[in-house]
Amino acid sequence: MTRIEWLRPVLTQPEYDFGKLMATLLSPSSPLQSEEFLKGREKQLSHIKRALLQSGRHALIHGLRGVGKSSLAQTSAYALPESEDAILIGCDENSTFATIIREVFDQMSGRSPVFEKSITERGLSFSRFGLGAEGKNSLHEGRASDPSSVNEAVRLVRFISENLTNRIVVVVDEFDLITNRGEQVIFTNFLKQISDQHVSATFIICGIGESVETLMDAHASADRYFHTEGLQQLPWEARFEIVESAAESLGIEIDRNTVIRIARISDGFPHYIHLISEKLFWRVFEAKNGGVVT
C-alpha cells in the first residue's frame, strides 16, 4: 500500500470508524446543523442570517416536503450570533399555540441552570402564566398549565429572555400540520407582539407553501415581521458537490457518470442524495476493491 493509500479511510479504517466518519459527512436521517455541509443553500442561508440581524424579525421557510427546510432552519438558528442554542420544536396534528409555548418553557427550564435557578429562587410556576408564586417546588410537581392568552405567552418568553445572556431562537417545524385557523391567527399575533414589545426572541418557522399564506393572511401587517425564504429542489452543482465531497473525504474514487446518476435519481431532494451515497459507499467499503466505485 502506497503512502497516499494509507491516507484513504475506505482502505485503512475499521468499519466503526469508517461509519462514524461517513455519518459526519452524510445525514439522510436527520437535519443538518452545520454550514460546512449545507450544500446549495448558501444564498438562502445568507439571506436569513442578514434578515435576522434586525430586531423583531422572524423567518419563514417554505417549500415542498423533503427539500431541506429543516436543515436550513436549524443551520440558520445555530449560525446566528449572540444567541442561545436553538430550541427545536416539531409540530403534529395535535399541536396548538399553547403546546408550542409550553414546549419553549419546558426545554429552557431543563436546559439552562441559570433559568431554572431563577425559577426556584423566586418560587415561580408556569401556572397559566402569570408566573404566580405557588411554592418553591411547584414547577417540579407536574407539567405546567398552558398559557391562556397571547399576552401570557409573551410574558413567559420575556421572562425567559430576561434570565438568559443571549437571545432565544426557536425553530418551529412542520407548522403546516396546525390546520386550525384560530390557532394560526393566535400564533401570528403572538409573533407580532414579540416583535412590538422588543422581546429578545426569534422564531424560525418551517412549512409548505400554504404556510406563507396562512401566516400572512392572519394579520394585515404580518409581512413586516417576517423574512420569507422559498426552497426548490437542489441545483445540479449542489447535488454533485454533496456526493463528490463525501467521496473525497472517505477516500473513495467515484466516476462522473455515477455522480450524475445519483443527482438525477434524487431529483434534487437532499435526503435521497445522502441516502443513495451512504448505501453506495458502504458497498465500496465491503467490496475491498481499492476504494473504487465500480
Rank of each mutant, 00 (worst) to 15 (best):
R155G: 12
L275R: 13
G110K: 13
I61N: 01
S71A: 07
L250I: 03
V259E: 09
F115Y: 15
Y16V: 13
H227V: 07
D17V: 09
L38T: 06
A218Q: 10
F126E: 12
V293Y: 02
I100A: 04
A73D: 06
G182Y: 09
I276E: 07
S211E: 03
Y225S: 06
S148W: 09
R57N: 07
E82S: 14
Y225P: 00
S30V: 12
V259T: 15
R65M: 14
G209N: 08
R181V: 03
V157A: 05
E93Q: 15
G123N: 10
Q233E: 15
L88A: 07
S30M: 13
N289L: 11
F269A: 03
N166H: 12
G110Y: 05
I89V: 10
R57P: 01
N137W: 09
Q44A: 12
G251L: 02
I89E: 01
A73F: 01
T258L: 03
F105P: 02
V185I: 10
E162S: 11
Q13L: 15
V104Q: 03
R283K: 14
G63N: 07
F126C: 13
R102A: 05
T96W: 03
M22E: 00
R264M: 14
R65S: 15
S71C: 03
L72H: 06
R256Q: 13
S221A: 13
A23R: 12
G68N: 06
L280F: 06
Q193C: 05
L32G: 01
A77Q: 03
E5I: 01
L177R: 12
D223N: 11
K49N: 08
V169S: 10
S221Y: 08
N151G: 08
A73R: 02
